[in-house]
Design a protein around this nucleic acid. Structure first.
Lengths: 229, 229
DNA sequence: CCTACCGATCGGTAGG
DNA sequence: CCTACCGATCGGTAGG
C-alpha cells in the first residue's frame, strides 16, 4: 500500500517543469485557492500524509518536507491545513456520489449494488488516501466545510433511497427491509470494507470483497429476483 | 450519547471519600500501575475524552480538567498518555473476545451470529467510549502494547475461524464462502456497525442493527439451515 | 519559493 | 495532590 506514491521531494533541483520554478517572489497569496498543477501535488501529498498519520498527527512541516519545500512555501499553495483537509474530503465524497449515480442507471438492484461496489473497490485501490482521509478525518473539518460535506451526503442519501424505493416497487428488496434499512446497510458495508482496506487487507489480490458483496446481495435481494453472477 | 457520564470534577472539595484525599505527598510513583478506584475513574475519563477528540486531539490537560485535577496529578494515576490508551484498548478488545467465546457455545451458526451481535450492541451502548477508542485509535499504541493487542486479535481470529469451520461441517455456511470469508465479513460488519454508531446513529432506539444482522445471516447461512428469528 | 520568527500548546518532570 | 517549570513542536505569518 505505497503511500506518497510517486516520490515527490527530489525534483526540487531537477528542472522537470522549468515554468513556475522559483516564481519571482510575486505579490503574495490571494491566488492561494487556484488550481495549479503544483497545488494538486500539494493536496495529493497532504492526503498521503493525513492517511498515514491522521489529520491531527500530521504536521504541516511533514507535508512540506514530502514536497521538498519549507512550511512557509506550502502556505503559498494551501490556505490552511484545514483547507487542505476540506478539499481532500470533498474530492473523496464527490467520487462516491458519482459512482452511485452511475450505478443507479443499471436495471436491477443486484446489478446496481455490484456496480457501485466495483467502482468503490477501484477507488479504494487508486485513491486510497482520499478515501481513508474523507472517512476517518471528516469530523475535523471546519463548520463551513462540514456544511458543504453535508450537502454531498444528503444528495448521496437521497439518491440511494430513490434506488431502493424503485427496487422495492419491482419486488427486488427483501420484504424484511425498508429502503431506509437498505441504505443504512449498504453505507455501513461500504464503511466496513473501507476500514478493512485501511487496516491493511489487500482487496486487489483476493476475492474477499466480491464474496462480501455477493453475501450482501443474498441478504438484500429475494432469491428469485437475483440475476446471479 | 452522554460523554463523561457522571460528573466528576466537582468532588474535589467534597469529602466523599475522606481516605486518599490529599495523600501526604507519599514517596512517589512506582505504584502508578495499581488499580485503585481513582485510577479506574481516570481511565474512564481518558476514554471519554479520547472518544470525543481522538487520541491525538485529546490533551492530558483536558483529561486532568475533566477529573478536576492538574496534569501533574494525573500522572500519579497513569504512567503516560499512551499507557492510558493501551489499557482502554485492551479492555475494549477483551470484551469482544468474551462475547465471541460466549456466542460460540450456541448450537447453530445463525444463533451464534445473533448472540455475538446482540452482545456487541449492548457493549456499544454501555461502553461506547471504549469501543470507539479501541477501534479508532488502536494504531497509536506503542509497539509493546501493539503486541499485546495482537495476541488478543489472534485469539479472536482463531476462535471465529473455528466457529465457521464447525458451521461449514454442519452445512450451515453458504457454499460460496470459506470460513475465512465468513470471518472477514463478520468482523467487517462489526466495524461497519461500530462506525455507524460512532457517526451518531442511535442503535438502541430502532431496529436497524437487528435487520442488518438478519440480512447478514441470510447471506451467510443457506436458507434451509437458518432457524429464523 | 526562502529565512526567521511568533505565541500557544503539547507530554512530561522536579520536588515537595 | 499541587506549583512551577522543561524542551519540543505546533500552525501560521512578516517580509522579501
Amino acid at each position: 500500500m505505497g503511500l506518497v506514491s510517486n516520490s515527490i521531494g527530489s525534483e526540487k533541483k531537477s528542472a522537470i517543469s522549468p515554468v513556475d520554478e522559483l516564481p519571482p517572489y510575486v505579490s503574495r497569496r490571494e491566488l492561494t485557492g487556484k488550481h495549479t498543477a503544483r497545488r494538486k501535488q500539494a493536496i495529493d501529498t497532504a492526503a498521503a500524509i493525513f492517511a498515514r498519520l491522521g489529520y491531527q498527527g500530521a504536521s504541516t512541516r511533514a507535508i512540506a518536507e514530502a514536497l521538498g519545500i519549507k512550511v512557509a512555501s506550502l502556505y503559498f499553495h494551501i490556505a490552511s491545513k484545514e483547507d487542505a483537509l476540506a478539499e481532500i474530503c470533498l474530492l473523496g465524497m464527490q467520487r462516491s456520489l458519482d459512482y452511485l449515480e452511475e450505478a443507479r442507471r443499471k436495471t436491477t438492484l443486484d446489478e446496481q449494488i455490484r456496480h457501485f461496489f466495483a467502482c468503490q473497490r477501484d477507488d479504494l485501490i487508486h485513491h486510497a488516501d482520499y478515501v481513508i482521509v474523507s472517512i476517518r478525518d471528516r469530523d475535523h473539518l471546519s463548520d463551513p466545510a462540514k456544511n458543504r460535506i453535508r450537502d454531498l451526503t444528503a444528495r448521496f442519501r437521497i439518491t440511494m433511497d430513490e434506488m431502493f424505493v424503485l427496487a422495492e416497487a419491482r419486488g427486488e428488496l427483501h420484504p424484511a427491509l425498508t429502503p431506509r434499512h437498505g441504505r443504512f446497510i449498504m453505507i455501513g458495508t461500504l464503511r466496513g470494507i473501507s476500514e478493512m482496506y485501511l487496516s491493511g487487507v489487500d482487496l486487489a489480490s483476493n476475492d474477499i470483497m466480491d464474496r462480501w458483496v455477493e453475501t450482501l446481495i443474498r441478504g438484500v435481494v429475494p432469491e428469485n429476483k437475483s440475476t446471479g453472477v
